[in-house]
């Protein structure tokens, strides 16, 4: 009945391995960062669909700025917040390519709000991935538009005050009201089940792009354990308790 570990670890018994689209470079993200998971899932989706040669990613400004080092597809770096505009240009010039943008909340929901809303309103035929951790992770954990009420950040150490700082922004709900979007959904990547759901959503989003349906917008509610000053496991629990009630998971629009 007993079997040696060496007999299990054989190529024919392989269940899961690192995607071949991911480079050998060690990711620069902090330990436990959701960016790493989402980068990996995007690589897996592109590999599964067999569209490596036809995919162009638009890298953002933020923690994920060096994302072009990790996935073996063509990339373009955009100015801060301008990824949807750059993606629009690429997709219009090369309509047969698969274009996706990848942005954090400081990029997509703060400096790039105009580009995001107009690209979605025009229904540019691309996939937009939005990583929302409620904080400006790279620059030192400052308050973002998506910071929750009462959530502490380095520029609001006593918690976000609605009277003074305004309300947190639900970007995904705003985008869902626009006619150009075909698929608007919110996911997380904190458990294996959530990662599998996220992967399905990304597969669907790339499929929508193939069928020229319009903009697919996927928000991933994420953690920033360095910025939140918690361990990765604690920040996942905090996210479940505090982020999910305000940013509920699930499909918001699916045409």
């Amino acid at each position: 009945m007993s079997i040696d570990i060496k007999d299990i670890i054989k190529p024919e018994n392989l269940v899961y391995q690192k995607s071949s689209l991911l480079t050998d470079r060690v990711m620069h993200y902090c330990p436990g960062c959701t960016h790493g998971v989402v980068n990996r899932v995007i690589a897996e989706v592109i590999e599964e669909l067999g569209i490596q040669e036809d995919t162009i990613g638009v890298a953002p400004v933020g923690c994920s700025v060096l994302m072009y080092n990790y996935i073996e597809v063509d990339w373009h770096e955009a100015a801060h917040g301008r990824a949807p505009a750059v993606g629009t240009g690429i997709k219009r010039l090369m309509p047969n390519k698969y274009v996706f943008t990848y942005q954090g909340d400081g990029d997509l929901a703060a400096i790039g709000t105009a580009e995001t809303i107009h690209a979605c309103n025009r229904g540019e035929n691309m996939v937009m991935v939005f990583i929302n951790n409620g904080i400006y992770g790279m620059t030192g954990g400052q308050m973002a538009p998506t910071t929750l009420q009462g959530m502490k950040a380095s520029t609001c150490p006593f918690g976000r005050d609605i009277e003074r700082d305004g309300n947190p922004l639900r970007m995904t709900e705003i985008v869902a009201t626009l006619p150009g979007t075909c698929y608007v959904t919110r996911h997380a990547a904190h458990t294996a089940a959530a990662v599998r759901k996220l992967k399905k959503a990304l597969l669907k989003a790339f499929d929508n792009q193939k069928n020229n349906k319009g903009t697919s917008f996927i928000e991933v509610v994420s953690t920033c354990n360095s910025g939140w000053k918690m361990t990765p496991v604690q920040s996942n629990k905090w996210m479940e308790a505090h982020m999910f009630p305000f940013y509920p998971l699930g499909d918001i629009k699916d045409v």
Partner: peptide
């Protein structure tokens, strides 16, 4: 699935 650095390979 949850490993952010893709450093786990699984066999079964």
């Amino acid at each position: 699935m949850v490993c952010p650095d893709s450093c786990i390979t699984v066999y079964k």
